[in-house]
């Protein structure tokens, strides 16, 4: 039970922590909080003891299913879904391009909808299903959109590609791939600086025209 929370912790800090949040609540009842004299509290704050205390109890348990695998992680509320994927779970297929929701490189599916994972806090996806680029193929069998991107050369450097593909799949599923113009409109949240746009649009048109299940 305890080990499952270790995944998201740097330095293996979770080894003996159990559920620190619950422990903290157990140990620091309202009474003991009141018993702290203001002087002590101020001194603690000055020495940044408060931050060290906060560091322990401010992590929240989050249950996420990512690409069909259940993860129980402890994360600080300020951790984005993107950084959880890349820095803690080593799922680096999802890319950081701006961290402000302006480029789309971090696009993933949450319960089937495309979202910018850099604008999504990890705690917001508690209990939800996340699909990243790593979860799109069925084993060695690529998703039709992945095949189409290769065929139409829908990329150069490949950095925006996972976001483009996740967005493209959602674009078709949403019913927003009815024409070239519509695709261009609904894919405009995904920037490609190498300029693979026409090839990406062609790939999406082919998948849409092929009528495969996406």
């Amino acid at each position: 039970m305890d080990e499952q929370y270790n995944e998201g912790l740097p330095d293996g800090q979770g080894q003996s922590a159990g559920n620190p949040r619950r422990d903290f609540l157990k140990k620091s009842t309202l009474l003991t909080a009141v018993a702290l004299t203001p002087g002590v509290a101020v001194k603690a704050a000055e020495n940044h003891v408060d931050e060290h205390v906060a560091a322990v109890f401010e992590k929240l348990p989050v249950d996420i299913e990512i690409n069909g695998v259940k993860h129980n992680v402890l994360v600080e509320p300020r951790v984005t879904l993107l950084d959880l994927l890349r820095e803690q779970l080593n799922l680096t297929g999802t890319k950081k391009g701006c961290d402000y929701g302006q480029c789309g490189a971090c696009t993933v599916h949450v319960d089937g909808h495309r979202v910018n994972s850099c604008l999504t806090l990890a705690v917001m996806v508690d209990g939800k299903k996340v699909t990243t680029i790593e979860g799109l193929a069925k084993g060695d069998e690529l998703h039709p959109m992945q095949e189409a991107f290769i065929k139409h050369d829908g990329f150069q450097c490949g950095y925006c590609t996972p976001g483009q593909i996740m967005s493209a799949v959602a674009c078709v599923r949403e019913g927003h791939a009815g024409s070239e113009m519509e695709i261009r409109e609904y894919m405009s949240g995904n920037i490609c600086r190498c300029g693979a746009y026409p090839n990406i649009v062609n790939a999406i048109m082919e998948v849409k025209a092929g009528g495969q299940q996406v």
Partner: peptide, 11 residues
């Protein structure tokens, strides 16, 4: 096709 295409489309 791009020789590293599969690596790029699968992350």
């Amino acid at each position: 096709n791009r020789v590293d295409g599969k690596l790029k489309v699968t992350g």
